[in-house]
Design a protein around this nucleic acid. Structure first.
Lengths: 122, 122
DNA sequence: ATATGTGCAAACTCTTTGCATGGAG
DNA sequence: CTCCATGCAAAGAGTTTGCACATAT
């Protein structure tokens, strides 16, 4: 049974208010606006349990720390803006991903990352 | 001007002998077979300078440490085997990657990762 | 001979864990 | 009132840096 603390409520609120995948550090600073005493360990612990519960989903980005977002549609990819650093959801998916692998290789899953400029940073 | 040391030669040899992207730790253990005194700091320093020289290329994988491979064809992607953990090059590329982004977003670059089983691990 | 590269150990960053206290139930 | 969650600080993992010594040029 999970307790409903002010910290946990603040962390959930942060994810609900922002629409973007966020890093633990992002969550900490946004969360401290609601609960000033919030500590980084609590953020990590709550993110971990929210992922286990299925409320959050991990967004793993090459070369940087993982971010997290609300769980949603089973399959989508991300666009990373080189200007503001924000990650946006993309609901398109390339066709024939399986066909990209050499024969003999079994594709179970795939990840697509687009990098560029979002409308605000163009 | 860059010095040609036994350590540096061993590190380059390791990349030339193996055909797969390798992590610093992989390079250290393989390199120590050639130069037992090889230290991890030297591996990191040489990888860094070999990347700057363009001799090596960084392979950034979501959720894990970067690996490195010989520089080659400007564009390719990777297949990660969930069995043996090796990364394989893929020379195919999805069509119309630009078209996947919502309008207003400018795509400058993209990354595709396939996950699954290589022929040896099927 | 000279200055860059190496090895070691310490520093750093990011994340996790141990422990005493506070607060949810 | 009883435990679980929090906050702090310390511990870990991976990477970088400072320093004295070795060595390529």
């Amino acid at each position: 049974m999970r307790r409903d603390t002010v910290q946990r409520r603040a962390i959930r609120r942060v994810f609900e208010d922002r629409g973007h995948p966020m890093s633990p550090e992002d969550v900490l600073s946004a969360g401290q606006a609601l609960v000033p005493s919030l500590g980084i360990a609590t953020v990590y612990r709550n993110i971990k349990s929210l992922v286990e519960e299925g409320w959050l989903q991990t967004v793993e980005l090459p070369g940087e720390a993982a971010r997290y977002e609300l769980s949603r549609r089973p399959h989508h990819h991300h666009f990373l803006c080189r200007g503001c650093g924000l990650a946006y959801d993309i609901h398109a998916c390339p066709e024939d991903v399986e066909g990209m692998a050499p024969k003999g290789f079994v594709v179970e899953n795939h990840e697509v990352l687009l990098y560029g400029r979002c409308p605000d940073c163009s």
